[in-house]
Design a protein around this nucleic acid. Sequence first.
DNA 1: AGTCACGCAGCAAGCGCTTTCTAGCTAGGC
DNA 2: GCCTAGCTAGAAAGCGCTTGCTGCGTGACT
Lengths: 348, 348
Amino acid sequence: MTVTLADVAARAQVSPATVSRVLNGNYPVAASTRERVLRAVDELDYVLNGPASALAAATSDLVGILVNDIADPFFGIMASAIQGEIGGPGGRAGGERLAVVCNTGGSPERELTYLTLLQRQRAAAVVLTGGAVEDAPHAAAVAAKLRKLTEAGTRVVLCGRPPAPDTQAVALTFDNRGGARQLTEHLIGLGHRRLGYIAGPEERTTTRHRLEGHRAALEAAGIAEDPRWTVHGRYDRRSGYEATLELLRRDPSLTAVVAANDSVALGACAALRDSGLRIPDDVSVAGFDDLPFSVDTVPSLTTVRLPLSEAGARAGRIAMGREEPPPGGIATVRGELMVRGSSGGPRK
Amino acid sequence: MTVTLADVAARAQVSPATVSRVLNGNYPVAASTRERVLRAVDELDYVLNGPASALAAATSDLVGILVNDIADPFFGIMASAIQGEIGGPGGRAGGERLAVVCNTGGSPERELTYLTLLQRQRAAAVVLTGGAVEDAPHAAAVAAKLRKLTEAGTRVVLCGRPPAPDTQAVALTFDNRGGARQLTEHLIGLGHRRLGYIAGPEERTTTRHRLEGHRAALEAAGIAEDPRWTVHGRYDRRSGYEATLELLRRDPSLTAVVAANDSVALGACAALRDSGLRIPDDVSVAGFDDLPFSVDTVPSLTTVRLPLSEAGARAGRIAMGREEPPPGGIATVRGELMVRGSSGGPRK
DNA sequence: AGTCACGCAGCAAGCGCTTTCTAGCTAGGC
DNA sequence: GCCTAGCTAGAAAGCGCTTGCTGCGTGACT
């Protein structure tokens, strides 16, 4: 009922082996024969059986992209860039690969399960994006998985994620610490001395690094840290809104609020406005990532631009073996401070 | 070198058949045996070979989700909801399926190629999201593909996409026309008579339906349409910015700008502000979709809320055979008008 | 007691493709 | 003219898993 290689072979009056070779194009086949085969394929509307071919060839054309939250443009943009380089369909003909993005929802278990699923499919490559969870056992489990994957020939690339020790995985890491530090230094330079910080979920590397950068800047400026000034939340707008109200409750004299990312900053702005405070006249706000909407807020958001697309594209090329991995398998990608309207000198 | 079913069988002192049955859990196996097998699996760290199993069983656990632009939250949100219901990992144990999202970038060819790739993988289900391209040959090609897929046992669901005639595909369609009409009626009710419209790409169904709704409202109010009032662009902020400048150039007396979606509306707001116009005092702005950031703009955006998550979740359940398809295979999902700060009465 | 039914495990035949090895054929080289 | 080299095509052996069917042993029924 479904058309198989053999059917095509019969129709083209050749052996299945020949059809396979025509389709894979890695073995000399006479032009006339090839054409006959191709015609038969066309006439029969033949579609290669992926599993069968993956089984026989011991490799598949699947490439997995793991993201924490597919509804967040931060990941969407990276995924899009990665997928663009994977070739997916539309890339150079022939090397058609199925680039698939898997949404872990930030859950360690799902991350592991997806990795297993990908391993099961004998994926050609896997790209993990975004911060990792710092839980030691989980990190070890992931590292073990990654080792297995590379052993099995799957290329593994981390994009915007810290390196995985004892692993063959290539890592393109964002300089979250440096970016955060620069950002806070900017605010301090403006004259701020009481800065609230809305951090992400406690257990994520991204959260910790950004927070560390922030604190490093404070310390360098000789500003003593006040535990009331830091609140943890999720990486979304809602969380930013609530955290800001909390911050304001704890210390109404804050003159600046630094958010873990742009979405959170958006929520912070809303909370400030709802509290009757003007931005930046009463309170300055800063975000992180420089997502597309950040330039459109009113006032536009001071933030740190992360080259999401570029990093994703590079990760994609490395995953496809089309670009050399950086020396040592690790590269740091820096962010760029974008000073915009949401930050200004503190009110007197 | 890699562990196979046979290895596990040997270790557990049973036949490969038994191991397979334990793993698939669809055949009676004595508890003691099962446990022995499970232990062996664990000790050997065995991972099922997906392709082999798909080949033998003639089905795979892959579910494809096609989106036009993964970097756009509109699709991200739907994809996330769909994936949540697919179970992906984290769902009920056992039924682990690899939900993968494929980014077509709005390109008809890529859409087709992805469909072929999924067909090749013998996907268990496919969900297509977002508007379709109206090009007749392409539509026919897609319909043919979908027919092939369903024939091969793949469940096909359209989410936020018009029904595909002559197809077994279940369709959850957004009432773009109705929503757009309501939105424009709201503006007209406010007193607006000269409304600019920034439409999406010409060839997309979504674009056409929203535009039709808009025009229907105009007509119903007896407002003659002026061709200068409509500009086509892409579904992104940048495009909205440019289109608005164009609109203003063509007719500076416009009192309202209706955008194809929220991202476009954001760009429109920026353009208006940069042109020295106040929102909504000078010009009202409206969007469509009600993406998360739309409530955070200043002023917040009047728009039409589409239940992206709900629709996606439902599509996911239907794709998994966990919910009955709507009668006739077609359901219309309505939007809800969200009146917010960006719309007001026209200036005198 | 004999029989039937049932529960559980194994055998073996593929699933549709890739690929190694072999074989036929043509075309030069001495 | 015979031999070797160079191409191209076919035969066949799996890849690792699923599943229909067979077979054995125990408990229940007559």
